[in-house]
Design a binder for these strands. Structure first.
Lengths: 101, 101
DNA sequence: TCATTTGTTCGAGATTTTCGAAACAAAGAA
DNA sequence: TTCTTTGTTTCGAAAATCTCGAACAAATGA
């Protein structure tokens, strides 16, 4: 597994962030990372195909939402909360507070 | 011009809201309605085709972001701020505060 | 070395988005 | 009534996205 691309959050637009979170699967991933802390892709597995999940993670990474580091055969994902808070003050807190319908 | 459909904001999901705002044109429309108050579609006109703009408004309406009322030959659009605030406390305020890059 | 686990990448089909152009609808003005 | 304005809807085509299975890559374990 190659190292993956992670953009500088400072260069991510608000529209990109909202686009990434504007999908039920991706929003749930972000919520769970916030609540349950970092974890592997498989632990977050929803009812979508493996390749689809990987695709969602790619979009989340490219929007600066998620950081993925290698660990053995796994990839551990975490929310880039502190950086997002600096770039978009209050946004993630508001979204996460509201997230549980 | 027919009357248009406006959903009950209580039935809109957070993912739908973020999806609607996760487009540069639609995000800008929401920002301008918040800052400048209600206005017609033509006043908000960006550099997109008329039909595309109409399409964006439809998505914003169906996500509960915008209310459009008839007034003569025009349609006056406004942010459903109070209802959004009730449904998603703090979210719109955070987004609008951050919106100007 | 060989098999397993965990994800990524590729390829293809289905859906969605975007656009311009044209047709249409409703209200106002000439 | 006829013309103008404003915006919606439909059409067709190009571009982007979503989803899945299959193939691939890297690390671990037997």
């Amino acid at each position: 597994m190659r190292e993956l691309f992670h953009p500088d959050v400072q260069q991510v637009s608000l529209a990109s962030l909202l686009y990434a979170l504007g999908d039920p699967v991706r929003l749930e991933i972000a919520q769970r990372l916030a609540r349950e802390g970092e974890q592997s892709c498989s632990a977050l597995c929803c009812d979508v195909a493996k390749s689809t999940l990987s695709h969602h993670f790619k979009i989340l990474r490219e929007a600066g939402v998620v950081y993925s580091r290698k660990e053995g055969t796994q990839r551990i994902n975490s929310l880039r909360k502190a950086e997002l808070d600096q770039r978009f003050p209050g946004v993630m807190d508001a979204l996460l507070a509201v997230a549980d319908n």
